[in-house]
Design a protein around this nucleic acid. Structure first.
Lengths: 283, 283
DNA sequence: CGCTCGTCATACATTTTTGTATGGCGGGAA
DNA sequence: TTCCCGCCATACAAAAATGTATGACGAGCG
């Protein structure tokens, strides 16, 4: 049984003639007759008696009509649900970003998004691993490494400036030396990051007081007097215990990219979040 | 939205790949992909994410799945109901026949049919008018006049013998005379019926005691001594108050035909009744 | 009775859908 | 690293579905 034939059956049952049903559906009278015949053959029953007054339902036809009407109700409910998804968003979005970016940059954005779309749950994952968009481990990924995968749609979101920070009240160290200076820097795995490289160059004699892969830890240690640290300005500037220091040369900034899998480009909630992200961070 | 696309969507959701769904349905992988795309375009939503592991439902896809499953349930219920119609018959059948034929010949058949198919209601109409099969005034018509309409499927059911009857104990009248004889015969409109013509020829001088279009009335009058009557043997022979008389010549019998509209040839309950009719009457 | 109109059925032309064949990609095993 | 297999996407050929045009039939009206 071809489910689509049921729709034509419904039109014929309601309109009473093949021609009227055809006009209603936007097809033609012979097609109505052929598909009704196909349905009758498939079900092994005569659904209408052909009379001079048009087609009159047999008892079997009347029973099929009741089922077909319920199918139609369900199909209409499906369509309403789908079209409703454009206005009343719900579901889950998984985001992935670095720790400080998630905390400092994304949290306010997520809060604003939640006020606008309370039924959408946002899950933000900030551990260091790269979440796989093709495997659907994340829906939206924020990172400094540009996306090169062909199935990922991405864009540069914003440029993050970095600065050297010290505990409030501290004096800038002498650029090019670093003797008797302690610093807090990236862990060994990320020792080649541009800001870590810049720090080693600017204060070659500095002692490494501590290392961390977590920018917020670095900021905390710096604020506690453990040593100077290069931090993203949005992170450093929000902490009253820290002060940005000018040693005559500034560390390089970093760009941040956002990407999502192209199969999700029509996912309404994803697009809605992205709009807010761009509005708040890229603007 | 093409309802039949939902069926393909269901197969893909359950099987997880286009190829497996195609094998399940008996179509091909490209067709699966195309029709899924058509459905997604129609609904304006992405229903699956294409991953290396096959197709994974999006949240929208999961919602559509729930609706599609309910549609499938209803479609299966429809099919069960229709196929059940082959074993558990119900509904209404309208029969049309002459009065005596309905009473004497059809009543026992209808009773037997009712024992076998208690959910079918049989309506037997025995007035004199010809019920129209094309207008669905009757589903099954029994009559002596053969059917000539092209849309009617008919067959000769049986040959009914007639006989001259008198009140029990009466003597046969002299053939060819009829003086001082009273007869009960057909009404004027049916005066040209073969048995009425025969009676007038066999007893040309007989006085017409009464006329009726109803064979049972004729039998009753005859049994009451009103006069001799030509009656179908099945009717006359069952009445103990009547006796068949032999006057050296016998009245002509009549054939009875049964017909139904060809659109109803697949109506299970009609075929079931017809089977019993043929078994009981034509055998 | 003849004519008109509306109905469904049917034959042929056109369009759409489906199948076949092929290629690209990713993952797993040797 | 290479090879094999399974997966989906795409182009072209074949099959199926649909539209156009026409005819037969029945009902209603003048």
């Amino acid at each position: 049984m071809d489910w689509s034939d049921l729709r034509i059956f419904l039109a014929i049952a309601r309109e009473g003639t093949l021609g009227a049903a055809a006009r209603k559906i936007g097809q033609t009278q012979p097609t109505m007759g052929r598909r009704l015949r196909a349905l009758e053959t498939s079900l092994g029953q005569t659904l209408f008696q052909r009379t001079a007054d048009g087609l009159v339902l047999t008892d079997e036809g009347a029973a099929v009509l009741r089922h077909a009407e319920r199918i139609e109700d369900e199909a209409l409910a499906l369509e309403r649900h789908v079209s409703g998804a454009e206005t009343q968003l719900d579901g889950l979005l998984r985001l992935s970003s670095s720790d400080w970016f998630g905390t400092v940059m994304l949290s306010p954005v997520i809060a604003a998004f939640g006020k606008r779309h309370p039924k959408v749950t946002v899950e933000l994952l900030t551990d260091a691993r790269l979440y796989s968009l093709p495997r659907r481990e994340a829906d939206l990924v924020f990172r400094i490494k540009p996306f090169s995968e062909p199935e990922v749609i991405s864009r540069k979101l914003l440029h993050i400036p970095y600065a050297l920070y010290g505990k409030k009240g501290s004096k800038p160290p002498r650029a090019g030396d670093g003797s008797a200076v302690r610093v807090v820097t990236m862990n060994a795995e990320f020792a080649d990051m541009p800001d870590a490289v810049w720090l080693k160059r600017a204060l070659p004699n500095a002692a490494i007081a501590s290392r961390s892969n977590n920018r917020q830890v670095q900021a905390e240690l710096c604020a506690s007097g453990d040593g100077f640290a290069v931090l993203p300005r949005p992170l450093g500037d929000r902490d009253r215990r820290l002060v940005a220091l000018d040693i005559g040369t500034a560390p390089p900034g970093r760009d941040t990219y956002v990407g999502y899998h192209r199969d999700l480009r029509r996912l309404a909630r994803l697009r809605a979040l992205l709009d807010i992200v761009i509005e708040r961070l890229a603007g």
